[in-house]
Design a protein around this nucleic acid. Structure first.
Length: 297
DNA sequence: AAATGAGCCAACCGCCTACTA
DNA sequence: TTAGTAGGCGGTTGGCTCATT
């Protein structure tokens, strides 16, 4: 496959350069740090749009589509990463019940979240539970269970979490209250430590050791000079304000997985203390409810 | 310690729509 | 008006990580 830039409206980019680029094999697969840099720098100087010509002019041997996707889903400054908060999970359930798999439309209502991320969440978390129940995620009983059981429960938990504001001082001593930028630690972006491993923290303050090479073996952020224009940390810090503007005033970022995604809870989770093990989405009450739904068919 | 399987997510694919000449 | 192209969107897949055996 060869780059064919049929866009004759490419404007500012030198046409000879375009033709030379056309003869190169297109790169595919994971993006390298150098590619990210090129894309970010180009967009910083010229803005978004006209992705095919942008790819050529920026010296990226990628399709315009690939550049667009990388920018929108990863490099864009306002992209939020990390666990979805309770509010976000609730909103996804609500909006999906209304619009179905209209991921981009749903994403518009979740600032900083991408359609890809929401789609992945739905497929990995929500559909998993439908599968466990051996029912279709689009079936009436599953939807009813979501609507009349899970969503009210999520709302309860959001309200309960709000009350935890009172215990902010307690929370602030946890490891993810980092550098004055708390939401930063809801990110799963990995930053290397000198021993070439890295530590990330999930929404509950539990740490996980991960490889520093981002899994692609081509570059890692350990090599990045301290430059806030390039470091994803910078973006996360700047997102704090936006996020809080959007969300209800809860520290939910700290307990982001209590709704449908209970798998990484530890005993900082008040729901464990209240007798809700939550380790599995399905407790006796849920199964009973689900049975009622089935019987009502 | 090695093998295996499951979960997760970044990236690609293909279709559709909007736009431009 | 129409053909060609770019961009947007949803579905799918490949590969990495981690947990389990």
């Amino acid at each position: 496959m060869v780059v064919v830039d049929g866009n004759s409206r490419s404007g500012s980019c030198d046409s000879k350069e375009l033709r030379e680029e056309d003869n190169l094999e297109l790169r595919r697969g994971p993006w390298t740090f150098e590619e990210d840099l090129k894309l970010m720098n180009y967009i910083a100087n010229h803005g978004e749009g006209r992705w095919n010509s942008l790819a050529s002019c920026a010296g990226l041997n990628r399709t315009g589509k690939s550049c667009r996707l990388r920018w929108l889903n990863y490099l864009r400054p306002d992209v939020r990463r990390g666990n979805l908060t309770l509010e976000e999970q609730l909103m996804i359930l609500e909006l999906h019940s209304r619009w179905g798999n209209r991921w981009s439309k749903i994403a518009q209502h979740l600032p900083g979240r991408t359609d890809n991320e929401i789609k992945n969440y739905w497929r990995t978390r929500v559909q998993k539970h439908a599968k466990q129940l051996k029912c279709d995620v689009n079936s009436k009983q599953f939807k009813d269970t979501m609507r009349y059981l899970w969503m009210p429960r999520l709302i309860e938990r959001i309200q309960a979490t709000s009350s935890l504001n009172a215990t902010a001082s307690q929370v602030s001593s946890l490891p993810y209250d980092y550098d004055g930028a708390q939401m930063i630690m809801t990110s799963t972006t990995n930053y290397s430590t000198p021993d070439n491993s890295s530590t990330s923290y999930d929404s509950f303050g539990t740490s996980t050791q991960v490889s520093s090479d981002l899994g692609v073996g081509e570059y890692n952020y350990n090599n990045i000079p301290i430059n806030h224009n390039l470091n994803p940390d910078y973006y996360q810090v700047n997102q704090v304000g936006n996020y809080q503007d959007f969300s209800v005033s809860t520290p939910s970022g700290y307990y982001g997985n209590q709704g449908l995604d209970f798998q990484e809870q530890n005993n900082t989770n008040p729901w464990l203390h209240s007798g809700d093990t939550s380790d599995n989405l399905w407790n006796v009450e849920d199964i009973w409810f689900f049975q009622q739904q089935l019987n009502g068919m």
